[in-house]
Structure formats: structure tokens, C-alpha cells
Design a protein around this nucleic acid. Structure first.
Lengths: 338, 338
DNA sequence: TTGTATGCGTTATCAG
DNA sequence: CTGATAACGCATACAA
């Protein structure tokens, strides 16, 4: 059994150099001769030395830790986002801390406060609703913050948003081309800014064509809620012939229920569009026409912003388009409309 | 703009006590009077003080950091596992670091080494194949390790396994009761121990009844591979009437292809059983009969083991059963068999 | 380029 | 119960 941890001191002694030499050998761009550097590395290798990032973070301004703040991360879209972020962060030499904001009992704030305790360089808020005060606190403590799809009107963080209005307009156009007239919008009761933007955008675009939209809102943004929506929408006298669902999970639930509980044919009787382009949307049982989350762009933009010096930051926010990926739940020509 | 970080020294000065008093006030179970404790807390509150975990970790033996090592974490089962772990870890006052082992170019080892650099107390290996040597290295550095569904024959870590053989036997029984005789097994080419255990267990159980099993292995353990399996299994002269898929993703792909490409009715013509009980398995398009991963038990057992003192550890491994959840892809009476 | 000395923010030890 | 002091492992200003 080897001694639990070997310090820079041990390496220095073994290599016959000073402690600082070891430190310099492990600091990129430090002034050290190739000879000593090699000897240090050799000793480090044989002794099994690893730089203690805790101690290094104590001295340096940055700890190399980035926090991923997320709720419901087993949801397909969120899971992909977390995977993409952790992957790229890791590639950039950063380490990612996971803050789970599922609980509503204040454990969230406590966890976010933890990120402060560990002196995280940055926090990326993918979702969840941490207290605004805590966000402010992190900011004041010198943490960089990236806000994704949140409309907190707060200064300092980098805001990344989707052009939900634009997407909604594209959806309306697609429906109109398919010859649909009775439009419906399926939302959840969550009321997240981006979800509401999709609803409002859809309503506005439809109104510009003199069309009315039936709106339903049920529970959480999940599969089961999509089923509920189908029940409330398809039992009514005048059924819609086009439904825009606020996300894919709800769209899939809606489709299943529409087909199996009401015998509705898709897209012959009813056109459906979703949002997110989760993997299941492409499964052959669904072939859902939906808007794709520009995950790569979101991640790239975030990392780029984080890599810039804090004072150099000119850009404060960025908006991306979610392109429509045509599959088989909307009638008509499958040409790119977005 | 507040001063970036406030130290225990600042609090001590503000409260009119010594640094040690502050330290004790924040250490549960330390000997400190209620009076000073309150004064310290007050000063800390107004000044916005937070214990620096980096410095604390430097002194204490434990950093409070636990690493979650996982690959393909946007897969439904993995995502749920990660969510459950991060949630419970957080509840226990630990902080979780995410190590993404998706890349195959050595970035994995580098990342795992990072966990050493941050002096993580423990690593939980959910998947992926980090080099055995690295695992050993973590172990030697005093890290606690939990291995989930891996059969590394290495001493020190806590091994958690599923009773795959038992599950496979239950599957065979279920198929036999449904009157199936032509059994097939759908596997991927990944060859993970637990996947192979399911295959071997299935083959053995079938053999005990004098039954032969057709085995196919295609690509990765994903939806698309399930479709491929359907194509190679259902185009042959003698089609199987029962298929055990190594996981739900493949089962769902298999079902979709069987129904849509071959007009097979499920369960009338063909019975299907999957593994994992991912959310999609319960969607009404599938209603898949499958084995449920005992995620809660896995997480609980892991945390319990981690909370025990390193020297107290009597138990080295634990095996859980995956109960069969009956839905609609297997004919016959839906009584509990497992 | 190299070594020395100091400080980062804590906790542990030991007097008082 | 409290305060001073010594670690923890590292990075850096400074002098050599």
C-alpha cells in the first residue's frame, strides 16, 4: 500500500531540486530548463505525483471547476445537453460539477451555494429555478454565469436564447401549406419563458393570418401531459387539424393518444410539430417533424464566452435559430422552410 | 461590487473573535459557546462569508467530492442513474463531479486522473471502460471506488451487480408460459459483462428445457441496432416467436421494425422482453414487458457503503434482482414470476 | 534559470 | 471554551 498522497516536496527531494522547480515544471509557460523539467517529470512519474488542484486553486485565481446546474436531467433533451457540456468542458481541461435542482425544498440554493464554496470559476444554468438572489451572489463572488433559455433580466451573465418566435412562425407556415386551418397549441403548466415564447409566437403568427388557436395547458412538460392534451383536444366537437406541441415529449404522448384512443391518422387527419428533436422523435413509430435544438452551437458559444477574459466580454447575449427537421407528421412538400 | 471573497479572518475581525472561533462555529460538533457561535454567524451573514472547501479539503482528509464516471449518459437508463446519484449525493452533503468517458482517445484516463488531482473521496464507475491501471491508481491514492455492473476482478472497490442469470431464467419461463418455442436473443456487439451474462443465462435456461436459441449481435446497444436485429431475425425462414432483447432501446427498435417492416403482431405472433424499464418502455406504443433496474437500491447501497468508515467495510459486493414488470408484449397471465 | 521566503484559507494541536 | 501557532500543498515575488 503506497503512501496516500505524494506532495511536490517529495518529488523535489527525489529529483534533487527545489519545491518551486517542481511547481514550475507543472506550470505551462513557466521559466524552467528542459533538463530539470525532465528530471522532475521522471521523479513525478515514479513517485506517482499529481498536482493537488485544491491547493493550486487556493493560490491561483481559478479552480478549473465549472458547475452544471440542471433539473430533470434524465429528460432526453437535458441529458444530451449535459453530455455535450461535460464532454466539451472536459476537452477544455475543465472539470464539471453537477448541481441537481430537482428538489424544491431549498436544497437547490444550498447546492448552488456549494459551488461558491468550491470556488467554481463558472456556473452554467441549464434549467431549474434557483433563487435570483443566489444567482446574484455567485455573480458578486466573481463567478461567470451562463444562462440558457432563461429571461432573468440580470446583468453580468451570458444569455443564450432560442429564437422561439421565429420557430413558431415557421410552424404556422408549415401548417398552412399543409392546408390546415384549425390550429391548436399544446403547452404545459410550467410556464418557462421559452415555453411561453413559443405559445405567444404561435398565437401571434396565426393571428397575422386571421386564424384562431386553441390552447391547452396540462401538468408538466412530459409524455403523459401530451396524452392529456390529446384527450381534451380531441373529444371536443371541432377537432384541430394541426397541433404544435411545446416539446417533443408532449408531442409523442399526443400522437400516441390521438392514434390509439381516437383513431386519428397522422398526418392525414392531423399534422403535428414538436420541439427539441430528441432521439425518440426519429423513431419509426413517430417520425416527428420537429425543431432541432442547436446543442452544439449552444455549447460552443458558452465555452467561447467562458474562455474569454472577464473584462474582454463585449457580447452579452446570443440567440440561435432552431431549424425545422422535416419528417412525416406534417403533410406536403418537405422543403426547408426555416 | 463586493470584494471577491471574504475569509474567516475578516469574519473574525468583524465579530471580535479569533479565526479558530470562526472555524469552530462552522464545524458541526465543535466545542463553542452558543453566544460566540451566534455572533460569528451574524457577522458571516452580513459579510457574505462561505467556508472555502478547497482550503478545508486541504486540511481535512476528505474533500466532499464524489466522481461520477459515465459514458453515453444521454441514454435513458444512464441518465436516470446519474440523476439519482447526483440527487442523493447532494442530499448527503457531497458534491458530484462528472467524468465523461465517451471519448476513446485517452481523454478518459486524463479525466479520471483529474479526479485524483481534486482529491475526490470516491469514484462511482457507472460504465465506460477506464483503464484498469487507472482504477488501481485511484484505489492506491486512497479513493473509495464503487463498480456498477463491471466484473473487474479487483480488490478494494465495492461491486454492485445485477442478477442477470436469474432475470434471464425468468424471461425463459415467461416465454414458455406464453407457449413460445422458438426463442431468440438480441444482443449488441459491445460485450459488456452484464450483457453477456444475460445472453449466457438465457441460453443456459433455454438449454435446461432442451430449447435452442438463435442469437444475433449487432452494433451498439441502441435503438437502430434493434431494428437491424429484426431484419436479420425476421427475414429468415423460421422466425422466432419470442425475443429477449439485451436492453429496452434495442427492444423498442426491434418492435418498431417487426411491426412496420414485417407486419408482425406483438404479442400475438411474437413475444418480446426487454431490460432496464426505461420510460419509453411504458409508452402506449410499446407497453414493453421488461426487467426494471433497481436504481434506488443501487444508489442507496452505494451511499451506504461510502458512508461507512474505510476500515469497517465488511461487505465487498452486493447483487440485486431486476424484477420483471409485466406489460403487453408477452402473452398470458400477468402474474409475478420473478 | 534557480532557490528562498511568504501567503492562500482552513483545520488541528496545544496552552491557557 | 478560547486564542495563538503550526501545518496542509501549492504558486509566486524576489533575490541570487
Amino acid at each position: 500500500m503506497s503512501k496516500s498522497f505524494v506532495s511536490a516536496n517529495d518529488v523535489a527531494r527525489h529529483a534533487g531540486v527545489s519545491r518551486s522547480a517542481v511547481s514550475r515544471a507543472f506550470t505551462p509557460g513557466a521559466s524552467v530548463s528542459e533538463d530539470t523539467r525532465k528530471r522532475v517529470m521522471n521523479s513525478a512519474q515514479t513517485l506517482g505525483y499529481h498536482v493537488n488542484q485544491l491547493a493550486r486553486g487556493l493560490m491561483r485565481s481559478e479552480s478549473g471547476i465549472v458547475c452544471l446546474v440542471v433539473s430533470e436531467m434524465d429528460t432526453p433533451y437535458r441529458a444530451r445537453l449535459v453530455r455535450a457540456f461535460s464532454h466539451e468542458l472536459q476537452k477544455a481541461g475543465k472539470i464539471s460539477m453537477l448541481i441537481n435542482t430537482d428538489r424544491s425544498d431549498g436544497g437547490v440554493d444550498a447546492a448552488l451555494r456549494q459551488t461558491l464554496n468550491y470556488r467554481a470559476d463558472a456556473s452554467i444554468l441549464l434549467s431549474g429555478l434557483p433563487d435570483k438572489a443566489i444567482t446574484k451572489l455567485c455573480l458578486d463572488s466573481g463567478q461567470r454565469i451562463v444562462l440558457i433559455n432563461r429571461d432573468d433580466n440580470i446583468n453580468g451573465p451570458f444569455h443564450i436564447n432560442l429564437n422561439d418566435h421565429q420557430a413558431a412562425k415557421v410552424a404556422v407556415n408549415a401548417f398552412l401549406r399543409a392546408g390546415c386551418r384549425a390550429l391548436a397549441f399544446v403547452n404545459s403548466e410550467v410556464g418557462t419563458p421559452s415555453l411561453m415564447a413559443r405559445e405567444n409566437g404561435f398565437l401571434a403568427a396565426a393571428a397575422s393570418f386571421g386564424l384562431n388557436v386553441t390552447v391547452t395547458s396540462h401538468g408538466n412538460t412530459v409524455y403523459e401531459s401530451g396524452r392529456h392534451a390529446a384527450h381534451s383536444l380531441l373529444t371536443s366537437f371541432d377537432r384541430p387539424d394541426a397541433v404544435f406541441c411545446v416539446n417533443d415529449l408532449m408531442a409523442l404522448g399526443f400522437i400516441d393518444s390521438a392514434r390509439q384512443d381516437f383513431g386519428v391518422r397522422i398526418p392525414e387527419d392531423l399534422c403535428v410539430i414538436g420541439f427539441d428533436d430528441i432521439e425518440q422523435a426519429s423513431w419509426s413509430s413517430y417520425e416527428l417533424t420537429t425543431f432541432a435544438q442547436p446543442i452544439d452551437q449552444i455549447v460552443q458559444a458558452s465555452l467561447l464566452w467562458l474562455s474569454e477574459a472577464a473584462d474582454t466580454q463585449n457580447v452579452k447575449s446570443q440567440t440561435f435559430n432552431a431549424p425545422l427537421v422535416w419528417r412525416k407528421t406534417v403533410r406536403g412538400n418537405h422543403q426547408q422552410v426555416s
